[in-house]
Amino acid sequence: MFVRGFRYGLTLAFMLAAGAAGAQQLSDKQLIASLGQVTQVAPVVDVGLLIQEVNANVGQGVANLPNWSQLASLAQLAVEIDFENDSIAIEPASYRTIGLIADALHDPRLRHYKFLVVGHTNATGKAEHNLELSMKRANAIMAALTTTFSVPASHLIAIGVGQEMPLDATNPKAAANRRVQLINLGVAN
């Protein structure tokens, strides 16, 4: 169902090695400074296995599965991105935030890293639909970063997890569960 003019807030998160919790609203300088703190070598992440785990566990959750739980040790910082309801259309006001993220990814401290773009939804609707929508939203963020802001496509990988990793597990339909994450996978090849 599409409701014209209605926006849902999504969270775009970078995982900080320090394990910062919760969403933060940041300025461009804070974003670059925080992402510049990523100094540890990331573990080898098999994106194919991540996708297999999501597809095999639709409606059951994936956060505690081995390949997904290893991502929790990587770098985190959250900012808000708005999409139209049940859509991949990014609200125009969110392009400033995406631009700030692109600026950070172009910063000399980050330009050599690869990021996993992970789309999330809340539990409103069917799990299969949410999985597909989350993948499309991750691809929309990736497309905006690569086309509008010239972030190298080789530095981004998109994946959707639907409703499988809620931030607010006590309220699976909460708006906080609708988000997109960027996870620093380490140095790009």
Rank of each mutant, 00 (worst) to 15 (best):
D86T: 14
T39K: 14
L105Y: 15
A56H: 13
L71Y: 05
E80Y: 09
L105R: 10
V41G: 02
R109T: 15
V62H: 02
N85F: 07
L65Y: 08
Q37N: 12
G99D: 02
G99E: 03
A89Q: 09
E132R: 11
Q30M: 01
G36F: 04
Q52F: 00
G119E: 04
G99C: 04
V62E: 03
V44L: 11
F83N: 03
P66K: 10
F83P: 09
A72R: 10
R137L: 09
S27N: 09
I51W: 04
H112T: 15
G119M: 03
A127Q: 10
G119R: 02
V118S: 08
A104Q: 03
V54A: 10
V44Q: 12
Q70R: 13
G99V: 01
I32E: 02
P108H: 07
A138V: 02
H106M: 03
V62G: 06
G125R: 06
L65T: 11
V38Q: 14
A78V: 07
A75N: 04
S134V: 11
H120K: 13
I98E: 10
K29G: 03
V47G: 02
M135F: 12
V45Q: 01
L50Q: 06
S27P: 01
L50D: 06
N130L: 06
V38T: 15
T121A: 12
L110M: 14
R137D: 06
A127C: 06
V44H: 14
E132P: 01
A63R: 12
A89P: 00
N85Y: 09
Y113C: 11
Y113Q: 12
K136D: 12
K114E: 14
A127R: 10
D103C: 09
T121K: 11
N122G: 13
Q37E: 13
P108D: 08
D82A: 03
H120N: 14
A123T: 07
V62K: 01
A78Q: 10
V62L: 05
G36E: 01
H112Q: 15
V58A: 08
A89K: 08
N57C: 02
V54F: 00
L65F: 06
D103T: 15
N64F: 03
L116W: 14
I101V: 15
Q60S: 13
K114I: 13
Q37P: 01
F115Y: 15
E128P: 01
S134P: 05
S27K: 05
V38G: 07
N55S: 10
P43A: 01
N57K: 08
I98T: 08
Q60K: 15
Y113S: 14
S134E: 07
L77R: 05
V79L: 12
A140P: 00
G59A: 10
P92R: 06
I90H: 02
R137W: 09
D28L: 01
Q25F: 04
Y113E: 05
Q60P: 00
V117Y: 00
S73F: 03
L31D: 02
I98A: 04
Y113R: 14
A104H: 06
A127N: 09
V47Y: 04
E132G: 08
